[in-house]
């Protein structure tokens, strides 16, 4: 089944507090330990984009309003691809 949506995390705002990672009901999100943001945090990213159900829980709990949640199929979606 294709994912029901996707999230985009603005790395300008993400502070790696892991609140979205903890609260995601489908374990879609994780911190990207291979990268650092300009502020020096490991940003959250979609580790399992195929799991996303676009419920918006991550955005509701995000203290820095860094997350945009989309429902639908990502234009030009390559399965398992990273958010641009």
């Amino acid at each position: 089944m294709p994912p029901k949506g996707w999230v985009e995390i603005n790395e300008l705002y993400c502070k790696a507090c892991e609140t979205c990672v903890t609260d995601c009901p489908t374990q879609t999100l994780a911190l990207d330990m291979s990268r650092l943001t300009v502020k020096g945090y490991h940003p959250a990213h979609m580790l399992h984009p195929e799991n996303c159900i676009a419920c918006g829980t991550c955005a509701v709990v995000c203290p820095d309003a860094a997350i945009t949640v989309f429902r639908g199929v990502r234009p030009g979606d390559e399965k398992g691809g990273e958010a641009a």
Binding site: G5, N10, A54, G56, A59, V60, A65, A66, I67, T68, V69, F70, R71, G72, V73, R74, P75
Partner: peptide, 13 residues
């Protein structure tokens, strides 16, 4: 599917 099927569930206020 086209881009018009995409709905923004949540964005920065």
């Amino acid at each position: 599917m086209t881009e018009t099927d995409v709905k923004v569930v949540y964005k920065r206020p």
